[in-house]
Design a protein around this nucleic acid. Structure first.
Lengths: 337, 337
DNA sequence: CATAAAAATGATGACGCTTTCATTTATAAT
DNA sequence: ATTATAAATGAAAGCGTCATCATTTTTATG
């Protein structure tokens, strides 16, 4: 309860507040003897530094704001935790907001974070009302990095993956296995750019290989296990059911697997299933899931160091990093030959 | 970049800074016409409120600090996200620190969070150097709630589960299925109270039922899938191998399952496996996992509302809530009869 | 030992907002 | 119209720290 301030410490140590501040922030500016005296008082009186006041005074902040679009599916967990870890190492604190894939909320969360004047901002993808969001970002002048996505705007810094290419690759792999009817299960792609790119990759790949388009093969659901099951059920009850299903997230793929099993279908004997993300369980699933590996940890780490760099070395030109994704072939897809 | 302050807004609106502040924080105190005028300027000039300055001035904060012990295993994800969500609803912002199960780090993270003078503190369990930690907490006078654990100290507020009882229940269930040799796989129980309680529940239950003690049946590893596999391999290569294995976290249980399968053992025909947590995948695993259901979301939500209550209605007596856990019987354990 | 230069410390005014208290303006009552 | 009362606004002093500039003390140099 005893909220001692720097001033009282100064009084007790027989120095000025300025000296106490220096003893704390730039020890080399203060004589050893006095510094020791000050630190002793600080310890004795259990003085607690007031970082907020300091931030206000020196017009900077040791906090960075992070916005994630969702807490379900939790694909971003690894990224979030990687950021947390690295930020902590660098003496930064992280404040998290959840936009729930909702433009309104996204704006309001961004607002709230901005009001705390963070040193930098990390956004996971970005949403439909791009212009507005970007204006807010630009106006604030706060260094910002977009993650998990390669935004169209060339002015933005980002650390992302090529969702389009990855989805294209997976689709092409399935086609290579001679599948002709390939189902697609995805999250809210009409709202989320990142997912929409995956959709486009799938669509273009089919068309490039001369396969016919069928709306019924694409099912949009929430990115949860349960919804993955539902989506799969829908696909499997089609008159002309697909021989392979590409789920644009591993979690949904597991749902699809569960649904298939429930229907008595063997994977991959009766139907092939592919995922996207390569979460921990994928390698241990039954059967092990063929998927696209996305290194969420790396995204987080890169994004953070990128951001720190921008904070410390301001420069107008954006940092842009596109991480590679890998097709990980396991045993959930079989060749039709 | 244009960091307009309240003062400039005031000038432009032809009022005093105080009025601008009121127009923002207590609109009812200001005439409609002037409020509109002020808000118009604010919008025009893209003024951004400076929450830090406000917090400093009014000696409070709309930020709460959250410490989690680990990012691996990610059992706490649901709790963290639940907190995030609810906090956001109530206009609070959340800053997260990771103690990595390390007392030194825990102290330093707590320090850092404290220096930002949060409105309240949420700790996930608490660590070995309890006294020191508690002293820091008490001294700061910041409302604090411990989560996931029922601390020994009766002065502490907490929202937890009875880890001891839950583990006891599961062990008893296995014994009820006539298992005599029951392996135990757990995380770092020597370091983490929460896990240690589970260990004690297991141990006491065995002893209460007159079963002999065997050190070799207890394997301590990191709470990861890979380590779960390793632990299982160790148990399965025992001369006198257990007929059932209780993994004190679902993630490790999945590792155990994977290891069993790799060895050609069928679950539960050849060996029974039980988990703890009931994470999303557990119900969909093959076979569906028998486990202890812990409602991580509820823990988070309760802890937060408990904390908010403490923030708004300070009172010396601690709030203590012990949530119930359920034994969820699925198909990963069989009776030996 | 005197003097110049360097190092350490102090005084003071921000930083952007809130809040109390005083003052002015609007409303109600006579 | 004149008070009395209430509502709206303004002036100014913090909140706890940092940074600039001025001042004092120490060290180095001749």
């Amino acid at each position: 309860m005893g909220q001692i301030t720097i001033e009282e410490v100064a009084k007790l140590a027989g120095v000025s507040p300025a000296t106490v501040s220096r003893a704390l922030r730039s020890p080399e500016m203060v004589r050893d003897s006095t510094r020791k005296r000050v630190l002793k008082i600080i310890k004795e009186k259990k003085y607690v530094y007031h970082a907020l006041a300091a931030d206000l005074s020196r017009q900077r902040s040791a906090n960075i704001g992070l916005i994630i679009p969702s807490t379900i599916g939790s694909i971003f967990v690894r990224t979030v935790f990687a950021i947390l870890e690295k930020a902590q190492e660098h003496g930064y604190t992280v404040t998290i907001g959840n936009s729930k894939y909702n433009p309104e909320i996204e704006m309001s969360v961004l607002r709230t974070l901005n009001e705390r004047h963070p040193a930098g901002l990390l956004l996971t993808g970005y949403c439909v009302r791009k212009e507005e969001l970007l204006e807010e970002i630009n106006r604030s002048g706060i260094p910002t990095v977009i993650m998990w996505e390669k935004p169209d705007d060339p002015q933005l810094s980002y650390v992302g993956i090529d969702n389009y290419r990855a989805a294209y690759t997976m689709t092409e792999y399935l086609i290579g296995l001679k599948h002709q009817r390939i189902g697609l299960i995805l999250g809210p792609y009409s709202k989320v750019d990142r997912v929409h790119k995956r959709f486009e990759g799938y669509r273009d790949c089919l068309s490039d290989h001369g396969l016919p388009w069928d709306d019924l093969l694409v099912v949009e659901k929430e990115p949860t296990l349960a919804d993955g099951m539902e989506a799969m059920n829908r696909l499997m009850s089609l008159a002309n059911r697909p021989t392979a299903v590409f789920a644009a997230s591993d979690v949904m793929a597991f749902g699809a697997m569960a649904a298939a099993k429930e229907k008595g279908l063997k994977v991959p004997a009766d139907v092939s299933i592919a995922g996207f993300d390569d979460i921990d369980f994928s390698a241990y699933a039954d059967p092990p899931l063929t998927t696209i590996r996305v290194n969420g940890i790396e995204i987080g780490e890169m994004a953070l160091s990128c951001l720190l760099d921008m904070i410390e070395n301001p420069s107008p030109q954006p940092r842009q990093i596109c991480l590679k994704t890998d097709l990980v072939v396991r045993n959930s897809c079989r060749s039709l030959e």
